[in-house]
Computed example of a mutant assay.
Amino acid sequence: MDDNEPAAEIVPSPLSRLDSPDLLKVIVDSALAGVVTMGEDGHVNGWGASAERTFGWTAAEAVGSRLSDLIVPARYREAHNEGLRRYRATGEGPVLGTVMEMEALHKDGREFPVEIRISPAAVVDGETVFIAFAHDITARRETERALAARVAEIAAAEASVEDYVRMMVHEMRQPLTVVTGYTEILLGQLAPDAPSRAELEVILEQAGEAGGMVEDLLLAARLEAGSVEPHLEPFQLAEVVRAAVARVMPRAALRRGTITAAAIPEGLRVRADRTFTRRILDNLLSNAVAYSPSAPAVDVTVDVAEDEVSIKVADQGRGIPRAFAERVFDRFARADEHNSPPGSGLGLYISRHLAERQQGTLALISSVEGRGSIFCLCMRADRESAQRIR
């Protein structure tokens, strides 16, 4: 090209200017939401392509028409018009700038749900121009209804399972009660050295274990259904801990074991459910004895820090495999089905739920295979008694 030849004039595209009406139209038509603009008098002065798809009216049909006649169901039109009148009189509109869900009218006469946000956009010739962004939320509403129906089905199924478990527990209790009762009668009639006494005692022990598993199943079902509510009250912790030790001590003594409960502060009260706490301690102590391969050696200690009480149950048993430690509180969790003591596999699962229901926690804080485990039950301390002890 000759240096003396004048350069060709470059004509800018209408879209190259940020204030270009053509650029604005592209933006509005590309928006995912249906974009509508309206004057203070309620007449449409802008109607994007998405609004055409959402409401069925073309821009040619919509512009110049009253918005209320196009998309507002008849029963809401007076409220819509009253809102415009209020804005013209006061400059205020309670729905402006908020996201609303409402029913809208399609050109074909059907109503459908939309999510809409209306805001003042600009002032032109002394009048406010409003802009609305509308989304058709029919699919979302259908999904919500489907989810709600599914939740209701699950709730009904859970209630049905709980009812079934209750019925089964009731049916199982009766034969177990009969077995236990007749076994106790027979034992009472036998001499202490009778040859069949040992067998009857085994029957009685096994019936008791079966009864415990049945009660665990019932309690687990009730916990999952949310029908177990705690009765929180302050009570002396030392009494509950010592009573729990006394209940489990005979089982430890049969295996020449010991359970020590030292350093329990006298006068210390906790705010919890006494029955829940008793059940948790029974489970922890029973497990500590049952999972000790030799003579059990179980230590129970109590610590107070701020407004929290920690009860630690430590044993010198077989310990929990590292790979199983994360699942020890799961339903029916048993590290070794073949070598585990009899049980439902629900004890720790139930205990953790009971701890949480009474605003506490239950955790496995350490475990080494072949050296034992330490579980910790934390509860809220009665503040006054805890301050006295500290």
Rank of each mutant, 00 (worst) to 15 (best):
E101S: 01
A122W: 03
A386D: 06
G188P: 01
W47A: 05
G39H: 12
F375R: 04
A191Q: 10
V309I: 06
G343D: 04
P6T: 05
L204S: 14
Y87L: 09
V304W: 06
A157H: 03
L84C: 08
A305G: 12
R388M: 08
G257F: 02
S344H: 06
R279M: 13
A263N: 15
K312Q: 13
M379C: 09
A194Y: 09
H170M: 14
T361Y: 08
S310K: 10
P12F: 06
S65L: 08
T54A: 08
P265V: 02
G319F: 00
S30A: 06
T177I: 03
R331F: 06
L67H: 13
E61D: 02
P195I: 07
C378Y: 07
V368R: 10
F375P: 04
S367D: 08
G347N: 07
V129M: 03
G208Y: 14
P12C: 05
R352K: 10
A295M: 06
T98Y: 05
W47H: 12
A198S: 09
R278E: 15
L218M: 11
S373L: 05
R278D: 15
M172W: 13
A207P: 07
T54C: 07
Q359G: 12
L354K: 10
P341Q: 02
T258W: 09
R251Q: 14
L348D: 07
L187T: 02
E205I: 09
R371I: 05
G93W: 08
L96C: 00
T258L: 08
V179A: 12
V124K: 14
E369I: 00
A220T: 01
A207I: 05
P296R: 05
P265Y: 11
A295F: 07
Y291S: 03
V72T: 10
A148H: 04
C378A: 15
P321I: 00
R247M: 11
H106T: 09
E127H: 11
P321R: 06
M1Q: 12
K312S: 15
P230Q: 13
L268E: 02
P250L: 01
V248C: 04
D41I: 11
G93E: 02
L147D: 04
V304T: 07
A104S: 07
